[in-house]
Design a protein around this nucleic acid. Structure first.
Lengths: 241, 241
DNA sequence: GTCTATACCACGATAGAC
DNA sequence: GTCTATCGTGGTATAGAC
């Protein structure tokens, strides 16, 4: 009974909180973080302006709450998938494809779940990863470093010949391509100047990204001698097309 | 003489303008675009607040001016380098490494030129490419689409087996990894949780990025059949290690 | 044409009444 | 927990001095 009462109190106080979260999520997805005002959010949610600061403390912390609500379960799913794959493999290292799949499949699931924001939320995540604002970077690194560490360890077992430093860099490149792709859509016009390419099929998108990343991860080590090329004479390029 | 006079008038009117550009560039590099106030810029430059709007129209257009001042020459250099390489090759397609080199070397030159902002300016560029603000994306795409188109054509000749659509995507992934890397530094802690890795050697950085991107560009085509995996029962994920 | 002073309005944040 | 009133600061717009 006391539990029920507590539940009621909890849910009552949570109603405003979740109304704010829902409205903020929708507006952040549509207009971005900076472009969205607290007054839009609160009037959209039908609550008072000050409620945001009461429940979340600041606009920045509101964004963090919006992100964790979706990202926490997704990252748990990622880890569970990775764990399951490794159990199935019984000691044998996974393929790059499998590990990348463990990262992508939960993201794809989220992208198809319209009740959780769908692909627009993926864009929001991608933007967050690419955002220069220090509070976002700190939030993401502190919050998700453990998950990344697991994946880094898995890649390390799969690519034992790669020095740890090199692996760190390649994961960094991977995250870059991934977040840029998730956030993207617009900048695509920069490359395929004509049509914005079908963005509705995120599945196809990530299936295209996969081989690119796998090949990159498995690339031969860089030749770190012979520094900056001289654009003048010496081109003795590499295995040609 | 009239030319001289015109020159004088021009340079006179440019003094304030360039003072603003210099101050804005320094502050944008240090604190980012959003975090920098117009009042910091104008007091830093020793000019009046309204001068920004007189010379540039808005804070956004000021950022665009800051970017073009460095990016325009760099992109011209990139195109010249590409052109030279292709002339030297006399009809034979270039290697991926060579084309990527034509993109990177001017960037490296800029990174080492402290008078033009050095590597901090590269970070600013990287941030701009990753920035969600629509005006930045529009600016970059409209301004640099032609250059990208040239490089895309060069890659197309080098990788003739790649469908145009696939090539567009891979260039998109490439830009993502590149911009993320240029902007990065902070998020690295997300991956190599310990030391922030030596960021002072941009040359080494891009030499590590090179092989990753080359391998990604040359990756085999994705298998677009067999769509989404079901995380539940059927895991016979991927051709195993 | 250039530059300045100044006012404007929206923003995020906060204090205090209920 | 919720609301109103208000603060300081942000980008912006303009009238007018040189």
């Amino acid at each position: 009974m006391s539990m029920l009462q507590l539940r009621l109190v909890d849910s009552k106080s949570s109603v405003t909180k979740e109304k704010i979260l829902d409205a903020a999520e929708a507006l952040f997805m549509e207009h971005g973080f900076e472009a969205t005002g607290l007054r839009q959010i609160t009037t959209g949610a039908g609550v008072n302006l000050a409620a945001v600061h009461y429940h979340f403390g600041s606009k920045e912390e509101l964004l963090q709450a919006v992100l964790t609500r979706r990202l926490d379960p997704m990252n748990q799913e990622r880890l569970a998938l990775l764990d399951q794959l490794e159990n199935d493999a019984r000691g044998k290292p996974l393929t790059c494809e499998a590990i990348i799949g463990a990262m992508f499949i939960p993201a794809l699931k989220l992208a198809r779940d319209k009740a959780r924001g769908g692909k627009n939320f993926l864009r929001l995540i991608g933007r967050a990863y690419a955002d220069p604002a220090p509070f976002i970077r700190q939030f993401l690194s502190h919050q998700y470093a453990p998950m990344i560490a697991f994946f880094k360890a898995a890649f390390g077992r799969t690519l034992p010949h790669l020095p740890a430093k090199e692996l760190s860099w390649r994961l960094h490149f991977l995250m870059g391509a991934l977040s840029y792709t998730l956030a993207g859509t617009d900048v695509l016009k920069l490359i395929s100047a004509l049509n914005p390419i079908a963005t509705d099929n995120d599945e196809l998108l990530l299936r295209r990204l996969g081989p690119f990343l796998v090949a990159g991860l498995q690339a031969p080590l860089a030749d770190l001698s012979e520094l900056t090329a001289r654009p003048k004479s010496g081109r003795r390029g590499v295995r040609s097309a």
